[in-house]
Amino acid sequence: MLLQIDKDCRRLCPDFNFFQCASKHPCSRLCGKNSFETLRKRVEQTVLQSESVSRNRLGITNMSAVKRKSSSEFVPLPDGQEAHWEVCERILFVFAKLNTGLGYIQGMNEILGPIYYTFATDPDTECEEFAEADSFFCFTTLMSEIRDNFIKTLDDSQCGIGGLMDQLMSQLKEQDPTLWHKLQEQDLKPQFYAFRWLTLMLSQEFPLPDVIRIWDSLFSQEKCSTFLIKVACAMLLLLKDDLLRGDFPSNMKLVQNFPYSTFDVQKVLKKAVEISR
């Protein structure tokens, strides 16, 4: 589990290097002289066992154990410092340990990223200092609402991600039967694109500043998942002309790579509000 968390956190928001930069407020108990071992060092010291098989000229098979250390994708910071991704790694690891029934599932890092970034870049230095604790609290609170989306056994139930995708398709059918019929005709299932949209709350479809703007609207609602469906439906409606003209391959590429540079995030949110009325 820790290896997967480490791998995912190192790759948070690769379009800019904020998460690879040093935190202004590293954990003193982990970065001091008499500190505890960090999670990063645990991963770096992980020894992977493997065996090589060879056969000599007499036909005798020999097996020899080979030890190799796991490689780091990024050069670690000097002792006494920790990167922002390491803080996120610690948050996710503690969350997984406290929620053993759910644990850690890939994608949770994408939910945590915008939350932590918001607190860690707070202009109020006092608030910025407690970014880790505040992020953990908000992430845990949010996960209590959307955790069913990460439970595989609930995928096909109404309370899981399958139920959300059904609601999205029902919303689209109500708003634009022509577009809905086109997607049905091409068998362009929501599992191909909406699964990621809804599970990760659009954190992979827009640049981070736009994600924060969308989330600001989502969290202003009584239930964020309800408005999230409206936003996802608005995205499809804005792509209507291209989807009606396109064939299956081009439409698949379009919905899996939403052209956010063409449609301003405010336009998407405005359309979602219109749907809500």
Rank of each mutant, 00 (worst) to 15 (best):
C27P: 02
K67I: 07
K69N: 02
F119G: 04
R245S: 14
T178S: 10
C159N: 12
E205D: 14
C138G: 01
S144E: 13
E51R: 07
K69P: 05
S54H: 02
E37P: 02
G113P: 05
G101L: 13
K152V: 13
Y117Q: 02
T141D: 05
T46L: 05
T38C: 12
S54F: 01
V265T: 07
G113K: 08
G107Q: 00
V231F: 00
S170T: 11
K33V: 05
M165D: 00
D187F: 09
R40E: 07
K270M: 11
L202Q: 03
S23D: 06
R11K: 04
T38E: 08
F16C: 12
L200M: 12
K182L: 09
S203Q: 10
A234V: 09
Q158T: 15
I5R: 01
K189H: 15
K7C: 03
V53L: 03
G160T: 14
E86G: 07
Q171D: 06
M201Q: 14
N257S: 14
V273R: 04
K152H: 11
I275P: 00
N34D: 01
T141W: 03
P14F: 10
F137V: 13
F139P: 00
L3H: 09
L239C: 06
S28H: 02
D241W: 09
A65R: 13
L3G: 11
V231L: 03
M143K: 13
R213C: 07
S261F: 15
S50R: 12
L243P: 01
T262C: 05
M169W: 11
Q167G: 05
Q49C: 12
T153Q: 15
L228V: 07
I115F: 06
I60F: 00
F16L: 05
Q171N: 09
